[in-house]
Nucleic acid binder design. Structure first.
Length: 252
DNA sequence: ATGTCCGTAACCTACGGA
């Protein structure tokens, strides 16, 4: 099956592009982040016409995650325990348990939001306790963490910033240590495998980006291909994130 | 480095967040 993750930075603003992209790529299951809408304005009907069932967790102005599927959709969880902000959704899509995560940004190292981010990631790790690493699952989304210095355009530009600290990296590493694999997507031609470029200062043109969107798969998943879909970042009215697409099979 | 884009509240502009 083909799965994807994409931080759309408002599903309302991105709807024409999202629908075109779904038609062109035809992913079976999709994790979306930053829908930035209330459930009442989520475009269930438009998605349905393309054959997608949808699960949305959102309350309006900020955050918001969704899971789309055309291979069946059974909601499993709509909240990370202890963290009621709409940043977490989990659903069974055919043979695969899909989790869409929008990890808190952290803002700055001296901001309470940074500690909140670390606590959020620790809670995400706790959800894995008691789960089977061989159960086919994918946890994907905007992690707001660059795992290595190679995952940012210039490490010196991030000294003293969030996204690159040992604590953040260790919090994601703990997910990998549990038994998840960081699926390293092929970059677009001539590019590094970045998934996010700031709207400002021509960062996308210069390929000054970051690899902060991740697809993590369990041992019950066999990945045959994965790539960063930079088309989702190009042209008129893009999101500031590219999508990632992953072709996989699941163990029965 | 802080140049853009988003939604919102309240108005045709400012603000918080990223």
């Amino acid at each position: 099956m083909l799965i994807a993750t994409w931080n759309v930075n408002s599903i309302t603003a991105r709807l024409p592009r999202l629908l075109d992209w779904l038609e062109q790529r035809g992913p079976d299951a999709v994790a979306l982040q930053e829908t930035k809408c209330a459930d009442a304005t989520f475009p269930y009907a438009d998605l349905k016409t393309l054959g997608y069932e949808a699960m949305h967790v959102g309350d309006g102005r900020w955050n918001g995650v969704a899971i789309l599927s055309k291979v069946g959709l059974e909601p499993l969880a709509s909240e990370l325990p202890g963290h009621p902000e709409p940043r977490y959704a989990r659903a069974r899509c055919g043979p695969l348990a899909v989790t869409s995560v929008y990890v808190p940004n952290g803002r700055s190292l001296d901001d309470p939001h940074y500690a909140y981010k670390l606590g959020w990631l620790a809670s995400l790790r706790q959800t894995l306790d008691g789960q089977d690493t061989t159960e086919p699952m994918a946890i994907m989304g905007d992690f707001n963490v660059a795992l290595t210095d190679e995952d940012v355009w210039n490490p010196r530009a991030f000294i003293g910033s969030t996204h690159v600290t040992p604590a953040e990296r260790q919090a994601v590493q703990a997910l990998l240590d549990w038994g998840l694999t960081d699926v390293r997507a092929r970059p677009g031609k001539g590019d590094r495998a970045f998934t996010y470029w700031d709207y400002r200062a021509g960062m996308f043109h210069k390929d000054f980006g970051m690899r902060i969107d991740l697809v993590l798969t369990s041992r019950g998943v066999r990945v045959s291909d994965a790539y960063v879909d930079r088309e989702a970042r190009k042209g008129k009215g893009p999101s500031d994130h590219a999508a990632i697409l992953v072709e996989l099979t699941t163990d029965a």
